[in-house]
């Protein structure tokens, strides 16, 4: 069978599907000062998994606000700088009007994912940290 670290080079999803791959990628991103990109990507996935129900409405609202505050509100943040202004105002609107939808971060997540796929993921595959691991 193919060793995990070779599968990580096949696609971003193969990398993000493996806990060791995530850990190594995050260490690399941390060195580059952009671990927030990965944290945000996973936060969006985790948020989407929270099914709307009467029991967790408050939690979903609190979580949506927390994601918004930490990654999107500060325009100088690494995540915020990679998200289109229209996408940011859409999320801001959802939070302000308390219209909490499981898909409200989907577009922002897609934009961050494209940036990772085009930029940090190829750099990771060429990095010392990955080459030493292999």
């Amino acid at each position: 069978p193919t060793p995990p670290y070779l599968r990580w080079a096949e696609s971003l999803h193969s990398l993000l599907d493996d806990q060791d791959g995530i850990n190594l990628f995050r260490t690399f991103l941390k060195q580059e000062g952009c671990a927030d990109l990965l944290d945000f990507w996973f936060a969006c996935s985790g948020f989407r998994k929270l099914e709307p129900s009467d029991a967790n409405e408050e939690k979903r609202l609190k979580l949506a606000k927390a994601i918004y505050k930490k990654y999107i509100l500060d325009n100088n943040g690494i995540v915020s700088r990679q998200i289109k202004p229209a996408t940011k105002s859409f999320i801001k609107d959802c939070v302000m009007k308390q219209l909490i939808d499981p898909a409200m971060f989907d577009q922002a997540q897609t934009e961050i994912q494209s940036m990772i796929e085009e930029n940090t993921y190829p750099l990771f595959l060429k990095s010392d940290i990955y080459l030493e691991y292999t």
């Binding site: 936060a43 985790g46 998994k49 927390a66």
Partner: peptide
């Protein structure tokens, strides 16, 4: 109430693949 950071960490963890 849990802090925002705690909530975020749990959310991020919930999206990660389970260890084999």
């Amino acid at each position: 109430y849990k802090s925002d950071d705690d909530l975020l960490l749990k959310c991020i963890g919930s999206a990660m693949p389970k260890r084999r």
